[in-house]
């Protein structure tokens, strides 16, 4: 009995219950609205469609292209954020100087920029720049927080004991900031992934990509939403893998 209670009190079991609840609610809503694939496919229909899609080479090309564009955008964003974030973390005046720009980037509607990038780089590459736009402020602030949260006594000690600024920066400050940067990196990855798919849809790209796949299935049969639900499920599964990675990294660095 004690063992049973400890199982149902365990986090993995409660996590599993949470997933079961989502599927149950999904099933009830789907059955209640009564139009099946036209409006709200059931979990079973979605899972069957997901299996079909995953046995089709097309969907892997779509995943690959979405991830490739995400990685390109993300790399640009990361390099920019690290350079500017580290400086802003170290020099308060530079941080203040960049603040208005970061506020604009954080609050401006992403969709509005898609049309700008559409004209500048075309529909195939617009999503790369949207990823930069969305992930840069998060990565930048993670870098700033990492540098700013280095304890004062360590900064003082570095000033006294470490004559070489660059050496102290690379060997001490960057490693101390790394937990913040890592978490920012992985948290914004999921956001970048979602945004990339959205940007593919809005930019109207009809080549490979998960967003383009949603458009393709909608064009084939707009009254059957099961492929769109299935693509969403695939995206969730991919993001879940990233979430697991975040969890492991948080544990590794003991970050709350």
């Amino acid at each position: 009995m004690k063992k049973f209670i400890s199982i149902i009190n365990s986090n993995p079991f409660i996590y599993f219950l949470g997933i079961a609840f989502i599927f149950l609610a999904w099933y009830i809503i789907s059955i209640a609205q009564g139009y099946g694939n036209i409006v709200f496919p059931t979990p079973v229909e979605t899972l069957v469609k997901t299996g079909e899609l995953l046995s089709n080479a097309y969907i892997y090309k779509c995943i690959g292209w979405t991830i490739l564009r995400l990685l390109i955008g993300y790399s640009i964003s990361f390099v920019l954020a690290m350079i500017l974030g580290v400086f802003a973390g170290y020099y308060e005046k530079f941080y203040t100087f960049l603040k208005p720009l970061i506020i604009i980037l954080k609050s401006a509607p992403t969709a509005a920029f898609i049309f700008l990038f559409l004209i500048l780089v075309g529909s195939r590459f617009a999503s790369i720049f949207i990823v930069v736009l969305v992930t840069f402020p998060i990565l930048y602030e993670a870098a700033v927080a990492g540098i700013k949260n280095i304890p004062d006594h360590l900064n003082e000690a570095l000033k006294i004991d470490c004559g070489n600024f660059v050496y102290g920066f690379i060997k001490v400050r960057i490693p101390l900031a790394l937990p913040y940067i890592s978490v920012g990196l992985l948290s914004s990855f999921a956001l970048g992934f979602k945004t990339s798919i959205m940007a593919e849809i809005i930019s109207g790209d009809t080549n490979y990509g998960l967003g383009s796949a949603i458009t393709a299935f909608r064009n084939s049969d707009a009254s059957n939403l099961s492929p769109i639900f299935a693509i969403t499920l695939i995206a969730i599964m991919l993001i879940s893998l990233v979430d697991i990675a975040i969890l492991l990294i948080k544990r590794h660095f003991k970050v709350q």
């Binding site: 049309f115 004209i119 075309g122 529909s123 009809t206 383009s212």
Partner: peptide, 13 residues
């Protein structure tokens, strides 16, 4: 050749 699923995007060109 760019084939765009949103007609307004093309008109904007």
């Amino acid at each position: 050749v760019e084939i765009n699923s949103a007609a307004n995007n093309v008109i904007a060109y």
